[in-house]
Design a protein around this nucleic acid. Structure first.
Length: 288
DNA sequence: CACCCCACCTGCGTGC
DNA sequence: TGCACGCAGGTGGGGT
Protein backbone atom coordinates (compact mmCIF):
# COMPACT_ATOMS: atom_id res chain seq x y z
CA UNK A 1 0.00 0.00 0.00
CA UNK A 2 2.21 2.62 1.17
CA UNK A 3 3.32 5.13 -1.39
CA UNK A 4 2.00 8.69 -1.42
CA UNK A 5 -1.28 7.94 -3.24
CA UNK A 6 -2.20 5.15 -0.86
CA UNK A 7 -1.38 7.21 2.22
CA UNK A 8 -3.42 10.10 0.82
CA UNK A 9 -6.40 7.83 0.12
CA UNK A 10 -6.21 6.51 3.67
CA UNK A 11 -5.94 10.05 5.04
CA UNK A 12 -9.09 11.14 3.23
CA UNK A 13 -11.01 8.06 4.26
CA UNK A 14 -9.97 8.30 7.89
CA UNK A 15 -10.70 12.02 8.05
CA UNK A 16 -14.37 11.36 7.30
CA UNK A 17 -14.63 8.75 10.00
CA UNK A 18 -12.35 10.03 12.73
CA UNK A 19 -12.55 13.80 12.99
CA UNK A 20 -14.57 14.61 16.08
CA UNK A 21 -14.19 11.11 17.47
CA UNK A 22 -12.80 10.70 20.98
CA UNK A 23 -10.53 7.79 21.82
CA UNK A 24 -11.87 5.99 24.87
CA UNK A 25 -9.44 3.10 24.96
CA UNK A 26 -5.88 2.56 23.74
CA UNK A 27 -4.56 -0.94 23.22
CA UNK A 28 -1.02 -1.65 22.09
CA UNK A 29 0.55 -5.10 21.74
CA UNK A 30 4.13 -5.94 22.68
CA UNK A 31 5.59 -6.25 19.18
CA UNK A 32 8.32 -3.81 18.31
CA UNK A 33 7.94 -1.58 15.27
CA UNK A 34 10.69 0.20 13.39
CA UNK A 35 10.00 3.38 15.35
CA UNK A 36 7.53 3.52 18.16
CA UNK A 37 6.40 5.19 21.33
CA UNK A 38 6.10 3.06 24.42
CA UNK A 39 2.65 1.69 25.12
CA UNK A 40 2.44 3.83 28.23
CA UNK A 41 3.12 6.95 26.18
CA UNK A 42 0.48 6.05 23.60
CA UNK A 43 -2.03 5.79 26.43
CA UNK A 44 -1.94 9.60 26.50
CA UNK A 45 -4.30 9.46 23.51
CA UNK A 46 -7.04 8.24 25.82
CA UNK A 47 -9.80 10.82 26.15
CA UNK A 48 -8.46 12.93 23.29
CA UNK A 49 -10.54 14.00 20.29
CA UNK A 50 -9.28 13.88 16.71
CA UNK A 51 -9.10 17.34 15.18
CA UNK A 52 -7.17 16.84 11.97
CA UNK A 53 -5.57 14.31 9.65
CA UNK A 54 -2.73 15.42 7.46
CA UNK A 55 0.00 13.88 5.38
CA UNK A 56 3.63 14.66 4.70
CA UNK A 57 5.22 12.42 2.09
CA UNK A 58 4.35 8.91 3.24
CA UNK A 59 3.78 9.99 6.84
CA UNK A 60 0.25 10.26 8.17
CA UNK A 61 -0.34 12.70 11.03
CA UNK A 62 -3.27 12.27 13.39
CA UNK A 63 -3.71 15.36 15.53
CA UNK A 64 -5.84 15.50 18.67
CA UNK A 65 -7.37 18.34 20.62
CA UNK A 66 -4.60 18.78 23.18
CA UNK A 67 -2.02 19.31 20.44
CA UNK A 68 -0.44 15.86 20.45
CA UNK A 69 0.31 14.32 17.07
CA UNK A 70 0.46 10.62 16.30
CA UNK A 71 2.90 10.21 13.43
CA UNK A 72 2.22 7.01 11.50
CA UNK A 73 4.31 5.43 8.78
CA UNK A 74 2.99 2.32 7.08
CA UNK A 75 6.34 0.86 6.08
CA UNK A 76 5.86 -1.98 3.61
CA UNK A 77 2.77 -3.71 4.96
CA UNK A 78 1.16 -1.24 7.34
CA UNK A 79 -2.58 -0.59 7.12
CA UNK A 80 -4.82 1.79 8.98
CA UNK A 81 -8.55 1.24 8.96
CA UNK A 82 -11.66 1.71 11.00
CA UNK A 83 -13.58 -1.38 12.06
CA UNK A 84 -17.16 -1.49 13.25
CA UNK A 85 -17.47 -2.65 16.83
CA UNK A 86 -18.76 -6.04 15.71
CA UNK A 87 -15.77 -6.89 13.51
CA UNK A 88 -13.07 -9.13 14.92
CA UNK A 89 -9.54 -7.80 14.98
CA UNK A 90 -7.22 -9.05 12.25
CA UNK A 91 -3.88 -10.61 12.99
CA UNK A 92 -0.92 -8.22 13.41
CA UNK A 93 -3.12 -5.50 14.92
CA UNK A 94 -0.47 -3.56 16.83
CA UNK A 95 -2.55 -0.58 17.91
CA UNK A 96 -6.28 -0.39 18.51
CA UNK A 97 -7.90 2.93 19.37
CA UNK A 98 -11.52 2.53 20.41
CA UNK A 99 -13.71 5.53 19.65
CA UNK A 100 -16.76 6.68 21.55
CA UNK A 101 -18.83 5.51 18.58
CA UNK A 102 -17.64 1.98 19.30
CA UNK A 103 -15.65 1.88 16.09
CA UNK A 104 -12.00 0.98 16.36
CA UNK A 105 -9.07 2.51 14.55
CA UNK A 106 -6.63 -0.33 13.87
CA UNK A 107 -3.00 -0.22 12.86
CA UNK A 108 -2.05 -3.55 11.29
CA UNK A 109 1.45 -4.36 10.06
CA UNK A 110 2.68 -7.87 9.34
CA UNK A 111 6.30 -7.03 8.67
CA UNK A 112 6.49 -4.27 11.30
CA UNK A 113 8.55 -1.86 9.23
CA UNK A 114 6.13 0.88 10.17
CA UNK A 115 6.12 3.63 12.78
CA UNK A 116 3.78 4.76 15.55
CA UNK A 117 5.21 7.72 17.44
CA UNK A 118 3.21 10.14 19.56
CA UNK A 119 4.65 13.63 19.88
CA UNK A 120 3.60 16.16 22.54
CA UNK A 121 2.08 19.50 21.62
CA UNK A 122 4.57 21.91 20.15
CA UNK A 123 7.16 19.30 19.21
CA UNK A 124 8.13 19.13 15.58
CA UNK A 125 8.54 15.47 14.56
CA UNK A 126 12.23 15.19 13.60
CA UNK A 127 11.61 12.58 10.91
CA UNK A 128 9.53 15.09 8.96
CA UNK A 129 12.52 17.39 8.64
CA UNK A 130 14.05 14.89 6.20
CA UNK A 131 10.99 14.81 3.95
CA UNK A 132 11.44 16.50 0.58
CA UNK A 133 9.06 18.58 -1.52
CA UNK A 134 5.52 17.42 -2.08
CA UNK A 135 4.94 16.52 -5.73
CA UNK A 136 2.49 19.39 -6.08
CA UNK A 137 4.67 21.93 -4.33
CA UNK A 138 5.15 25.14 -6.31
CA UNK A 139 8.80 24.99 -5.37
CA UNK A 140 9.18 21.74 -7.32
CA UNK A 141 10.51 23.01 -10.64
CA UNK A 142 12.90 21.64 -13.28
CA UNK A 143 15.43 24.18 -12.06
CA UNK A 144 15.17 22.99 -8.46
CA UNK A 145 15.62 19.36 -9.51
CA UNK A 146 18.54 20.26 -11.75
CA UNK A 147 20.20 22.00 -8.83
CA UNK A 148 19.61 19.12 -6.43
CA UNK A 149 20.81 16.51 -8.91
CA UNK A 150 23.80 18.45 -10.19
CA UNK A 151 26.83 16.20 -10.28
CA UNK A 152 24.95 13.10 -9.15
CA UNK A 153 25.77 9.92 -11.04
CA UNK A 154 23.22 7.67 -9.38
CA UNK A 155 20.39 6.46 -11.60
CA UNK A 156 17.39 8.75 -11.86
CA UNK A 157 15.28 5.87 -10.53
CA UNK A 158 17.26 5.96 -7.29
CA UNK A 159 16.98 9.73 -7.19
CA UNK A 160 13.18 9.51 -7.41
CA UNK A 161 13.16 6.95 -4.61
CA UNK A 162 15.11 9.30 -2.34
CA UNK A 163 12.37 11.01 -0.40
CA UNK A 164 14.66 13.85 0.65
CA UNK A 165 14.16 15.34 -2.80
CA UNK A 166 10.60 14.57 -3.87
CA UNK A 167 8.47 13.06 -1.12
CA UNK A 168 6.22 10.07 -1.48
CA UNK A 169 7.47 8.30 -4.60
CA UNK A 170 8.04 4.61 -3.96
CA UNK A 171 9.25 1.68 -6.00
CA UNK A 172 6.08 1.20 -8.04
CA UNK A 173 5.49 4.80 -9.03
CA UNK A 174 9.17 5.44 -9.74
CA UNK A 175 9.01 2.91 -12.58
CA UNK A 176 5.64 4.22 -13.75
CA UNK A 177 6.78 7.84 -13.78
CA UNK A 178 9.96 7.10 -15.73
CA UNK A 179 7.97 5.10 -18.27
CA UNK A 180 5.56 7.98 -18.76
CA UNK A 181 8.47 10.40 -19.03
CA UNK A 182 10.24 8.21 -21.58
CA UNK A 183 13.39 8.05 -19.48
CA UNK A 184 15.64 5.04 -19.03
CA UNK A 185 15.74 4.30 -15.27
CA UNK A 186 19.55 4.10 -15.27
CA UNK A 187 20.02 7.59 -16.67
CA UNK A 188 22.41 9.40 -14.32
CA UNK A 189 20.32 11.90 -12.38
CA UNK A 190 22.82 14.67 -13.00
CA UNK A 191 22.47 14.29 -16.73
CA UNK A 192 18.79 14.99 -17.19
CA UNK A 193 17.94 17.95 -19.37
CA UNK A 194 15.51 20.65 -18.32
CA UNK A 195 12.92 19.15 -20.68
CA UNK A 196 13.44 15.74 -19.12
CA UNK A 197 12.95 17.07 -15.59
CA UNK A 198 9.83 18.82 -16.79
CA UNK A 199 8.57 15.51 -18.12
CA UNK A 200 9.33 13.83 -14.79
CA UNK A 201 7.40 16.47 -12.85
CA UNK A 202 4.42 16.39 -15.18
CA UNK A 203 4.29 12.59 -15.37
CA UNK A 204 4.70 12.36 -11.62
CA UNK A 205 1.84 14.69 -10.83
CA UNK A 206 -0.42 13.07 -13.40
CA UNK A 207 0.27 9.49 -12.30
CA UNK A 208 0.08 10.18 -8.58
CA UNK A 209 -3.19 12.08 -8.98
CA UNK A 210 -4.63 9.31 -11.09
CA UNK A 211 -3.58 6.74 -8.52
CA UNK A 212 -5.24 8.73 -5.74
CA UNK A 213 -8.45 8.78 -7.73
CA UNK A 214 -8.22 5.05 -8.43
CA UNK A 215 -7.43 4.32 -4.80
CA UNK A 216 -10.58 6.06 -3.76
CA UNK A 217 -12.55 3.01 -4.71
CA UNK A 218 -10.28 0.96 -2.49
CA UNK A 219 -10.92 2.65 0.82
CA UNK A 220 -14.60 1.65 0.67
CA UNK A 221 -13.51 -1.94 1.14
CA UNK A 222 -11.86 -0.96 4.37
CA UNK A 223 -15.05 0.68 5.52
CA UNK A 224 -16.91 -2.53 4.82
CA UNK A 225 -14.36 -4.40 6.88
CA UNK A 226 -13.25 -6.66 4.06
CA UNK A 227 -9.95 -4.90 3.61
CA UNK A 228 -7.73 -7.94 3.62
CA UNK A 229 -7.51 -8.85 -0.05
CA UNK A 230 -6.11 -7.31 -3.23
CA UNK A 231 -6.67 -3.62 -3.02
CA UNK A 232 -5.13 -1.13 -5.41
CA UNK A 233 -6.94 -0.81 -8.67
CA UNK A 234 -4.22 1.41 -10.06
CA UNK A 235 -3.52 0.92 -13.73
CA UNK A 236 0.11 -0.01 -13.80
CA UNK A 237 1.78 0.25 -17.20
CA UNK A 238 5.11 -1.46 -16.51
CA UNK A 239 5.51 -2.35 -12.83
CA UNK A 240 5.47 -6.10 -12.31
CA UNK A 241 5.01 -6.72 -16.03
CA UNK A 242 8.38 -8.11 -17.07
CA UNK A 243 8.02 -10.03 -20.34
CA UNK A 244 4.59 -8.61 -21.09
CA UNK A 245 4.11 -6.33 -24.09
CA UNK A 246 4.50 -2.61 -23.50
CA UNK A 247 1.02 -1.03 -23.57
CA UNK A 248 2.33 1.62 -25.96
CA UNK A 249 4.64 -0.20 -28.40
CA UNK A 250 4.24 -3.91 -27.51
CA UNK A 251 7.97 -4.41 -26.95
CA UNK A 252 8.58 -6.81 -24.03
CA UNK A 253 8.86 -5.00 -20.70
CA UNK A 254 12.28 -5.47 -19.10
CA UNK A 255 13.21 -5.89 -15.46
CA UNK A 256 16.44 -4.84 -13.79
CA UNK A 257 17.55 -4.32 -10.22
CA UNK A 258 18.65 -0.87 -9.07
CA UNK A 259 19.69 -0.23 -5.48
CA UNK A 260 18.31 -3.63 -4.68
CA UNK A 261 14.83 -2.84 -5.98
CA UNK A 262 13.02 -4.29 -8.99
CA UNK A 263 12.75 -1.80 -11.79
CA UNK A 264 10.57 -2.18 -14.87
CA UNK A 265 10.97 -0.35 -18.16
CA UNK A 266 10.29 -0.52 -21.88
CA UNK A 267 13.44 -0.74 -24.03
CA UNK A 268 11.70 1.03 -26.90
CA UNK A 269 9.85 3.80 -25.07
CA UNK A 270 12.72 4.40 -22.62
CA UNK A 271 15.84 3.97 -24.73
CA UNK A 272 19.24 4.28 -23.14
CA UNK A 273 20.05 6.62 -26.03
CA UNK A 274 17.97 9.24 -24.24
CA UNK A 275 21.08 9.77 -22.13
CA UNK A 276 22.29 12.55 -24.41
CA UNK A 277 25.11 13.71 -22.13
CA UNK A 278 26.01 16.51 -24.53
CA UNK A 279 22.83 18.43 -23.98
CA UNK A 280 23.52 18.67 -20.30
CA UNK A 281 26.39 21.09 -20.36
CA UNK A 282 24.70 24.24 -21.52
CA UNK A 283 21.74 23.33 -19.41
CA UNK A 284 23.77 22.83 -16.25
CA UNK A 285 25.37 26.22 -16.46
CA UNK A 286 22.03 27.78 -17.27
CA UNK A 287 20.06 25.93 -14.62
CA UNK A 288 22.60 26.40 -11.86
C1' DC B 1 30.18 13.52 0.25
C1' DA B 2 27.93 10.03 -2.87
C1' DC B 3 26.55 5.72 -3.30
C1' DC B 4 25.48 0.83 -2.25
C1' DC B 5 24.33 -2.95 0.77
C1' DC B 6 21.95 -4.81 4.15
C1' DA B 7 19.18 -5.36 8.15
C1' DC B 8 14.82 -4.93 9.98
C1' DC B 9 10.26 -8.64 9.59
C1' DT B 10 6.43 -11.86 7.90
C1' DG B 11 3.95 -14.01 4.23
C1' DC B 12 3.24 -15.79 -0.24
C1' DG B 13 4.22 -18.11 -4.61
C1' DT B 14 7.16 -21.40 -6.93
C1' DG B 15 9.79 -25.33 -7.77
C1' DC B 16 11.85 -29.46 -6.19
C1' DT C 1 2.54 -32.37 1.79
C1' DG C 2 6.82 -30.15 3.09
C1' DC C 3 10.52 -27.33 2.65
C1' DA C 4 13.88 -24.06 0.73
C1' DC C 5 14.17 -20.10 -1.66
C1' DG C 6 13.20 -15.70 -3.78
C1' DC C 7 10.49 -11.90 -3.63
C1' DA C 8 7.57 -8.00 -1.67
C1' DG C 9 4.70 -1.06 -1.85
C1' DG C 10 10.28 1.58 3.00
C1' DT C 11 13.90 3.42 5.66
C1' DG C 12 18.29 4.50 7.51
C1' DG C 13 22.77 2.95 9.58
C1' DG C 14 27.11 1.74 8.24
C1' DG C 15 30.70 0.44 4.93
C1' DT C 16 33.25 1.45 0.63
Amino acid sequence: MPELPEVEVIRRGLAKKLIGQTFLHVQRNDKRLRRQSEAAALAALCGKTVTRLSRRGKYLLIQVDDGQTLVVHLGMTGRLFVLPASCPLPSHAHLVLTCQSGQRLVYQDARRFGQLVLYPAGVRPPELAQVGLEPWSRRLTPEWLAQKSAGLTRPVKNFLLDGRFIAGIGNIYASEILFAAGLHPQTPAGRLSRAQWTAVIQAGRRILAKAIRAGGTTIANFADCEGQAGLFAVQLQVYGRAGEPCPVCAAPIQRLVLAGRSTFWCPHCQPAAALAPLRRKSYQTAGG
